[in-house]
Amino acid sequence: MRVDADRLLIDSPHERQIIRFPWWVLLLASLLAVLFQIYVPATFRFLNFLEMPLLLVVYFPLMWRRQILGTTFGCALGLFQDTLSHHPIGMFGIAKTLVGYFTATVGMRFEVDHWAVRFLLVLFFFSFHRVFYWVLSNSVLHIPLELDLGRMAISGLLNAVVGIFLFNILDRTRESA
């Protein structure tokens, strides 16, 4: 395990290469993610555990390893999602901004291509996102939401699994640096 753990951390600055993606990939992926979010669960209710926008907000900043970019991307995607909801605009924005920032920061320290890292990060940020949204909703909007931790854990695991596959697909769209 020690060896593994060693391999998960980045050791030297030159390992932290910056990975770029074509702009259209970004745009299309975001749009599809949000559309998926509002459209697919309407037909397939069982898919409503998926948080596609969140997966993107974990993936891209993780790859970019740039805080500002990650923060902005999280913010933009979150706000877009907000506009399609019926709660005040900014709830997802704030939650995803934070996720974007943290994933970018984390990306600077971890071997982001490793599936285990991705799995754990998605699991962690999914939970973070849910809890943070819950806190926001309760404290800011005074809308008491229920926080079902068991459900959250299961959804987190499922999202992490989906995330690994999705990230593999997205890996192919990278522009070689």
């Binding site: 509002i38 309407a42 909801s85 019926h86 709660h87 997802f92 849910r130």
Partner: peptide, 9 residues
Amino acid sequence: IGTNAAPSS
């Protein structure tokens, strides 16, 4: 044609 974007919506 769509559900709300919020998870518990």
